[in-house]
Design a protein around this nucleic acid. Sequence first.
DNA 1: TATTGTTATACTCTATAACTATA
DNA 2: TATAGTTATAGAGTATAACAATA
Lengths: 156, 156
Amino acid sequence: MPSVPATATTGGTDATDVGTVTARLRVSATRLARLLRRQGDTGLSPSQLSALTSIENHGPMTLGALAEHERVAPPSITNVVAKLEDKGLVTRSPCASDRRVAHVSTTAAGAALLDEVRQRKDVWLAARLGELSDDERERLAAALDVLDHLTGLDRP
Amino acid sequence: MPSVPATATTGGTDATDVGTVTARLRVSATRLARLLRRQGDTGLSPSQLSALTSIENHGPMTLGALAEHERVAPPSITNVVAKLEDKGLVTRSPCASDRRVAHVSTTAAGAALLDEVRQRKDVWLAARLGELSDDERERLAAALDVLDHLTGLDRP
DNA sequence: TATTGTTATACTCTATAACTATA
DNA sequence: TATAGTTATAGAGTATAACAATA
């Protein structure tokens, strides 16, 4: 019994019913993400990893911008960035034009750590994909752009 | 450039290449799970929510079994269960045959809370699915059993 | 005076070590 | 003596409030 009833616009069979697709996709996406996360131990705390990832994705940022992006209070970012700096994963550069401001960027070591984690996850996931049949892999490949669309990855 | 090269067994085009599918699926699954998590605020800490979910999924458990399942130290479970009990989401029942042991189970309120969270996520996700074209929804539906297979949901 | 970031402090979460009750 | 769980205590992590430096 789907938690969200099918709308009048769908008109599919039970398996393509929006409510059914919703609940199944919610469960498998959550589960897959958890399995992936389990492959990616970094020695960093969740906030440290999240901040490092954001810095890499967005490029050099001020501490304030980073705090806002991480939805975290300014003192927490001070702390997180200090830890990342201690580990040599990010560097701070004081802003020349406004000396209150500091920008943080990933170091080569920081980028390498993130890349290594992604690779470890990819190795695990590729092995799981290897266990699928050709037909299954094709159906999965055919749905990838739908997942991109769903998560906004088609318009970054 | 995919992090994991295509194997000799695939022979697909670039879009169905295992390395490409791997990286794209990793990113979109992670992203979808994060978006879902953002819809599901419960007022519980991550460990409390995780423990409550495990108790619901597995049925009544001893504290020790729960600690092991959550990969957490025994004193942490004592604490987590105490908080959940304070909120009326779980109950403890002392074991009749071994009075050192206590079992925990979800209350009706605990089950209702979990259900409400799932429903909130489903409402959000169903709205996103509603933005897809019929063709996209069909391709997604056709890949659901693959995701189940991938995450072990086909053999629970 | 407003803004950026830090320091001071308190609270939550989780761990290890020592303990209690039961087997 | 061994086991299930709790209490004592310490170390992260993050928040609010007060502060310092700069604009």
